[in-house]
Design a protein around this nucleic acid. Sequence first.
DNA 1: GTGTGACTGCCAGTCCGTT
DNA 2: AAACGGACTGGCAGTCACA
Lengths: 93, 93
Amino acid sequence: MDIKGVISLSEQPVIIKQIIGKTLKAIRIKQGLSQEDLAQECDVDRSYISMIEVGRNEPSVTKIFDLCKGLKIKPSDFFKMVEGEYEKTLEQG
Amino acid sequence: MDIKGVISLSEQPVIIKQIIGKTLKAIRIKQGLSQEDLAQECDVDRSYISMIEVGRNEPSVTKIFDLCKGLKIKPSDFFKMVEGEYEKTLEQG
DNA sequence: GTGTGACTGCCAGTCCGTT
DNA sequence: AAACGGACTGGCAGTCACA
């Protein structure tokens, strides 16, 4: 088994949904919004925002696009952040 | 195959899953891979690849990361393509 | 203003047949 | 072979009520 196999095993190495939640929360806080504010902006349940941020639910891509609209950021920027955090987590193991 | 014809008359403005499928297929074809090749690479069912490409299923972000690994591209690049197509579709209305 | 147990409906994902 | 699609099911997305 080579290096590649060690790093990129497919079992359950990095939990993406937790990274998504962490990223979402960071952006929301930075913008001075409450979960409730964001929920209304995106027309979703407030507790749903909570679940995402805590890493209990993984939102679909469609939902992420909605959330990004509420946050007034580009989805591609959001995913870039997620990817960065993902790679960082992989390195740390 | 054009996205426009696929959009239903429901309130959904743009169907992200259709764009994801279109994007995935374009990349796969460009790399000269069959659905089966990619399925094996990502350890998923072959017909699942088909469903995504046809726009019947919307894969989770986690699955998209898996698929990108199989395609050897960066997820952020994938999402950038999706976003580009999304905005293009919005303009056309 | 935020987290969470409990619940339900729906859809992601698979199996298998068809082309 | 290579792709599509009908039919099925388990699990999770998403909601509500409360803490």
